[in-house]
Design a protein around this nucleic acid. Sequence first.
DNA 1: GGTGAAATCTACCTAGG
DNA 2: CCTAGGTAGATTTCACC
Lengths: 151, 151
Amino acid sequence: MLDEIDSKLITALQENAQLTSQELAERLGLSASQAARRRQRLEGQGVIKGYRAELSAAELGLGVQAFVQVQLTSHAPAHSTSFNKLIKSQPEIVSAWTMTGDADLLLRIYSRDLTTLNDLIHNILLPHGAVGRVHSQIVMSQIKQDAPLPA
Amino acid sequence: MLDEIDSKLITALQENAQLTSQELAERLGLSASQAARRRQRLEGQGVIKGYRAELSAAELGLGVQAFVQVQLTSHAPAHSTSFNKLIKSQPEIVSAWTMTGDADLLLRIYSRDLTTLNDLIHNILLPHGAVGRVHSQIVMSQIKQDAPLPA
DNA sequence: GGTGAAATCTACCTAGG
DNA sequence: CCTAGGTAGATTTCACC
């Protein structure tokens, strides 16, 4: 479905979504019109879902990154939906996944500082009826980040 | 440093980096030239780090997402650097962080299927000298994903 | 906030396997 | 018939006013 040129194209656009058709064409060994056509095809197929600005958390004053594992005491639909709403209402929680294994949920959080993070955990997450054990880990450093998806 | 309009601007560009100055201006209640000027300023300040294409993992045939916690047996520099190289050499590992707490590292992985993921864990990660305990959790579903950074 | 030159995109056309 | 390259009108950007 995706040939070698498509792979190079999506890798290039993951690094820099603002490449012009001409610049893309040079990297791919194609003409600008062909590069544009391939990009349109990949957008239409849904391989490329969209283009997003990447921000600097540090510049936004978000000094603390954390992953928080949340074990739910109840899996009743009412509890789940109300907890999901809680998660969606908190802008600091940027991603949330349900997981296999001993923890039910994994939350990815960006906070201003440790105090703000602890507030979120102790005053917002833990008081919720469905929340059991919470285990938080702070990110110390990033070894590898935002690598392109393997194409 | 960032006013209300800047916040709206970066939220809009996180949703769609391809908005034209004119479209941005309409959302912000500004003229196109002012919207473009603000965007340039935020790019220059480093608040906006860049623009990236977002791909569909499913369309790329990456059916399994996982988070793997890795405990290192040794923190000797030689072991760390060789393990970091290993991580960077594996395209399936898209992100890696060092963490506080009982696990030293957290890896985010996109794999074709469970077999491929298990190959990576058992034939590549575990044989490495510095690797102790490994605990992997598969992503079942996403409750919240790729929310804009709180501005 | 506005303007115009320069760059870019996109739809259409032609050529070749 | 499908894929590649070229072209012109429309759109967008960006330096300057």
